[in-house]
Structure formats: structure tokens, C-alpha cells
Design a protein around this nucleic acid. Structure first.
Length: 419
RNA sequence: GUGGACGUAGCUCAGCUGGUAGAGCACCCGGUUGUGGUCCGGGAUGUCGCGGGUUCGAGCCCCGUCGUUCACCCCA
């Protein structure tokens, strides 16, 4: 009887060779700018106490109300697979008392996140993000740096067809004043049931409606931008000045709506043009009350999350993914058991000196092994047979030209290095 | 969660108005003794996503299910 094939759960993104090289390239490229800016790794659990997200992200958000993977563990605790990264970082900062040390706390993370959504292109139930958080200093210059780091991540991949949108959500007083006006305005509109339900949860959502008639209706709605306090306004202006100076292109989007409740002040999104409906490749912003909300000190923070899966799709759409990003330096083909043992030793020695060395395993014919060497992208091949073992010198074959020359085994390292 | 489309060898796909499956690429072997990328010859592979139904007979029709995909909601 044939066993049923077990499949991956619905909607997960997974990467296997050779395509996984592309994923690796994107993920590393996105996070490198943060490391260059002195951010340190924070490796956190993928599951947390459910309350962390209900309290931190906000119960009214879609993410919390209908997209969380929540279950009970054996001890009866309510556990949730993390739907985003910031709340977990806050929890860890508080738990490890990092907020009592040097500020700002600057950390980066990379890993899997989970949302129980209906999957589609660019949207998965398990997906990958890299992100950073800068906590404890409220300075427009940090806002600009955080945005610049994200932008640099995308730029380093060679992406061009994306735009950065920014806005300011102001302080809580600004938002409260605006909310009253906006609610009043919305009350004058004739909305269908679903839409007015959305408006009750978060009236800002209506700004994001894709229907033309809604856009028309909302055109005259009061903008949060116009309700910003003097201070918020000044800070946001400063952020923009910094971005201008850095030569980072952006567009102001006073209609921007983010899905997480904790954002305040400077808020931004990166949108790619070739991705269809799921066009956001990254986003973030300032979150002034979050830390306190989670039981920590009253420290402000700012951060971003970048979608690795989507950035990869964007890179593929733009055709900027490098080919053959991985090649070996040397492919050793042993002939016979004695040679195999010798090949293991030789490979180990060369690897110790930093060379990427592969070995042909199994009992395939030399011809087959050569084919394998060819496909590995190895620059050189060495055949290790009785002749070589006896003489102590090998034929070092350059694959691109087909030319080979004789070198002693001990001189292999040097020969590889000089090429 | 709502609506539409799709699901055939590892990959990309073909399969006429229903008569029990094919191509290209990839893969494996060989083209004389230990040398790849080209060329030539040969070869394996699918219970046509899964389950049920209609039919003398289904990859082609119907239903369900799983998965994928596109849009909505929302978001990375």
C-alpha cells in the first residue's frame, strides 16, 4: 500500500535549493545595512504569551482579532505564534532590563512570522521578515536613519521600482482631536454595512478603500496631518529634511493606514510596483506608548519590518537576482576507496584555509563525477586516483577553459589562492 | 472569512466532440581503458492532486475534498 504523501501546511513559504540561495541573498542583503549601523541581533521565540499581542498590537486590529495562530499548550497557557516582531522585542527588552542600560537599544531580528490569512501571491501563513528596533531615544534623526537603513536594504538588492511613502500620525492628542472630526465627517456619509463596521473599528481605514466612489467621498475628509501638534509637525519636518539630505526619495501619503495600533508619529511604508495586490514590501514607524503599554518604562521607539518573501518576488520581477551566486572553488573527484579517504583529508585542509571544496561521493563513473563538478559551478577540479596518490601531485583543471596543469598536493592551496 | 480560475512525468506544458497518456527540458546509462559543458544512441518515470458519482468506458462531464492562483478584507 502506498503511503499518502504528507504536504506542507497550507500557505507556508518554503525555500529549497537551488532557489533558497536567492532567499538567502535577499534576507542577508536586507539586514546588512542594519548590522553596518551597529544594530545587534535579538533571537526571540516564535511563540509568545497571547496577551503580548492582544495588549501590544491591539485587540481591534485584524491581525489580532482574526489572523493569529493561537492555541493552548499543555499547561493550559494561551500561546500565539508571533504575527509581527516588535511586540516580542519590547517584551524581551523589558524582561532583560535592557531599558536600564545604554540608550538607544538597537537590535535586529530575522525569522518566521505567522498569520492565519487566506494565502495568495506574496501573502503566506508563515512568512519571513527582517526588522530592526531603535528604542529609548526620541529624535527625528533616528527616524531618518531607520528609514534610510530599510531603504538601503532594498537598494542593495538593486530594487528600483518601489516607492517610500511617509506620514506622521502625531501624538495622542493630535490623533484624538482628528478622530472626533473624522467620526463626525464619516457620520455624514452613506455607507454600506461592512464599510461602516470598518469605520467603527478604525475610521482611518476608509482612507485606504480601493473603490473609486469611496475615494471620492473621502477626498474631503479631514486629514490627520492637519491636526498635528506644533511639536509633531516640527519633528516630522525634521525627518523629511534628513531624508532630503540623504537623497532618499519619498512621497507624503496623508492617507496611510497601518494595521497595527501602536504606531505614532513618523510612519512609513515601502511599496513595490510589480507585486499586484500584496504590494507592501516593508513598513514601520514610531511607537511611543508601546513599551509602557507592555509594563515597561515609558520609552519611545521606532522600527521596521521588511518582508523577505515579497522582496524576493520584487527582485525576481525586476530581474535583479544574481545568477550563480554560489560556486565552489574546487571539486575533488576521488577514484577508489583509498583516494576517497585522501580526498576527505585534502578537502578538510583546504576548507580550513577558507576554500569552498566539494567532493564527488558514491560510485559514479568519472564522467558522471565530472558532470557533477560542472553543475556545482566549481572553478577547478582535481581527480585523485592511484597515479596521483603515488606521485603526490595532481592535475588541477580549470573548468572554464578546460586547461589543466600539474601541481603538488601541498601546493594546491597556493594554486587556488592565486587564481 | 467571501468570490473567480486552475491542479497531467522532477520542471514547463500538450492531450481533438469522453475510448484506459505524450513533447521539450532535466535525470540515468553508453559512444573502448581516468575527465564536464556540444553532439549521437539508449533508458526509467506518472494509480492524469485525492475521494465519490454519471457512463459500456473519464485525464477530459458532475459533486466533494486538499492544494495552488487572482481579487476582496487585510498586510510583510
Amino acid at each position: 500500500m502506498k503511503k499518502e504523501k504528507i504536504q506542507a501546511p497550507k500557505g507556508v513559504s518554503e525555500y529549497v535549493p537551488p532557489a533558497s540561495r536567492e532567499f538567502e541573498w535577499v534576507r542577508d542583503g536586507l539586514i546588512t545595512p542594519a548590522r553596518l549601523a551597529g544594530y545587534s541581533l535579538m533571537e526571540l521565540p516564535v511563540f509568545e504569551d497571547t496577551q503580548l499581542f492582544t495588549r501590544g498590537v491591539g485587540e481591534s486590529t485584524d491581525v489580532v482579532s482574526k489572523e493569529m495562530y493561537t492555541f493552548e499548550d499543555r499547561g493550559g497557557r494561551s500561546i500565539t505564534l508571533r504575527p509581527e516582531g516588535t511586540a516580542g522585542v519590547m517584551r524581551a527588552v523589558i524582561e532583560h532590563n535592557l531599558d536600564r542600560g545604554q540608550l538607544p537599544i538597537k537590535v535586529w531580528y530575522s525569522g518566521a512570522f505567522f498569520r492565519a490569512e487566506r494565502p495568495q501571491a506574496g501573502r503566506f501563513r508563515q512568512f519571513y521578515q527582517v526588522g530592526i528596533e531603535a528604542i529609548g531615544i526620541d529624535d527625528p534623526a533616528i527616524d531618518a536613519e531607520v528609514i534610510a537603513i530599510a531603504d538601503q536594504g532594498f537598494k542593495s538588492l538593486g530594487l528600483k521600482r518601489y516607492r517610500l511613502e511617509i506620514t506622521s500620525l502625531g501624538d495622542s492628542a493630535s490623533r484624538a482631536a482628528h478622530r472626533i472630526e473624522l467620526d463626525n465627517f464619516i457620520a455624514t456619509l452613506d455607507l454600506d454595512e461592512a464599510t461602516s463596521a470598518r469605520a467603527k473599528i478604525n475610521p482611518l481605514r476608509l482612507f485606504d478603500d480601493k473603490r473609486e466612489e469611496m475615494k471620492k467621498m473621502m477626498a474631503k475628509a479631514p486629514l490627520l496631518m492637519d491636526f498635528l501638534s506644533q511639536e509633531s509637525r516640527a519633528q516630522f519636518a525634521e525627518v523629511q529634511e534628513h531624508l532630503n539630505r540623504l537623497g532618499i526619495a519619498y512621497v507624503l501619503n496623508p492617507h496611510m493606514v497601518r494595521g497595527l495600533d501602536y504606531y505614532t508619529g513618523t510612519t512609513f511604508e515601502f511599496i513595490h510596483e510589480d507585486l499586484g495586490a500584496q504590494s507592501g514590501i516593508g513598513g514601520g514607524g514610531r511607537y511611543d506608548g508601546l513599551m509602557e503599554q507592555l509594563g515597561g518604562q515609558s520609552l519611545s521607539g521606532i522600527g521596521f519590518g521588511l518582508g523577505v518573501d515579497r522582496a524576493l518576488l520584487a527582485a525576481q520581477a525586476e530581474g535583479v537576482v544574481p545568477k550563480d551566486s554560489f560556486t565552489s572553488d574546487l571539486f575533488v573527484i576521488p577514484l577508489g576507496e583509498k583516494a576517497k579517504s585522501e580526498a576527505l583529508l585534502l578537502a578538510a585542509q583546504l576548507r580550513n584555509r577558507g576554500h569552498v571544496v566539494e567532493i564527488a561521493f558514491g560510485e559514479r563513473a568519472l564522467k558522471g563525477a565530472m558532470k557533477a563538478a560542472d553543475k556545482s559551478g566549481s572553478k577547478y577540479v582535481v581527480v585523485l586516483g592511484d597515479t596521483e596518490l603515488a606521485s603526490g601531485s595532481v592535475e588541477l583543471k580549470e573548468m572554464s577553459s578546460g586547461v589543466s596543469k600539474s601541481v603538488t598536493i601541498s601546493a594546491l592551496h597556493e594554486a587556488l589562492s592565486t587564481h
